[in-house]
Simulated scan of single mutants.
Amino acid sequence: MARPRTNDEEVGERLLAEAGRVVATEGIAALSLRALADAANTSTTAIYSLFGGKDGLLLALYTQAFEGFGGAQRAVAETDDPITDLAALGIAYRDWALANPNLFRVMFSGALPADDPTCSVAARDTIGPLVAGVGRALAAGVLSGDHETIVISLWAAVHGFVTLELDGLLPAADPDASIHAVLKAAVSGWR
């Protein structure tokens, strides 16, 4: 009779969540497989069984972060108003980051293998909805300027806001109202 499999998806999710916490708060150098396994209430064997080792675990963590973020961006429904759609992408960006602060920090920490082809594709795909949204706004004549520069400026505005908010450095009394004001100002500069 075969032994029941104990290293299942739930164990993998616990390992990824704890790895995300460690990488986001302490850095990749602090990621010890033994400590990670203990914190996730499993064994190092589970890490090797599920991910093939530390590199595989980190690749899975990085991919999980970008796929989750990209999914949130792609879930924003397209309307007949490209400006409304750009604002909705900014709100979705913030909402996902607030719901997944460790994964957000993992994505932008520079600690994970961005040069890996799988990771590069996952990272590049996350910006696709913004690139398309700016393209729609330019085609509709509601924005004008260099496509790439507009994408970068809108991304930087939202990313900066979210990073300040996550780090507790946002001086705004009402972050919800403030993100809307930031989005309005960022888009208005390209009208």
Rank of each mutant, 00 (worst) to 15 (best):
V11S: 09
V11L: 04
G12C: 06
G20N: 09
G20P: 07
R21Y: 06
T25V: 11
I28W: 00
A29P: 08
A29G: 15
A30N: 09
A30C: 10
A35D: 14
A37K: 13
A46G: 08
I47D: 05
Y48D: 04
L50Y: 12
L57I: 00
L57V: 02
L59T: 02
Y62I: 03
Y62H: 15
T63S: 14
A65P: 04
E67F: 00
G71W: 06
E78K: 10
D81I: 07
P82F: 01
P82D: 08
A88L: 07
A88W: 01
A88I: 09
L89A: 10
L89H: 08
I91Q: 04
I91F: 03
A92S: 11
D95F: 06
A99T: 11
L103V: 11
R105D: 12
S109D: 09
A111L: 14
A114Q: 06
D115T: 11
D115H: 13
P117G: 13
T118Y: 01
T118I: 07
C119A: 15
C119V: 15
V121P: 11
A122H: 04
P129Q: 07
L130Q: 05
L130A: 00
G133V: 05
G133I: 00
V134Y: 00
R136M: 12
G141D: 12
L143R: 02
S144F: 08
D146L: 04
H147L: 08
H147P: 06
E148L: 11
I152W: 13
W155C: 02
A156L: 10
V162C: 12
P171F: 02
P171R: 09
I179E: 04
V182L: 05
V182K: 02
G189S: 12
G189H: 06
R191I: 02
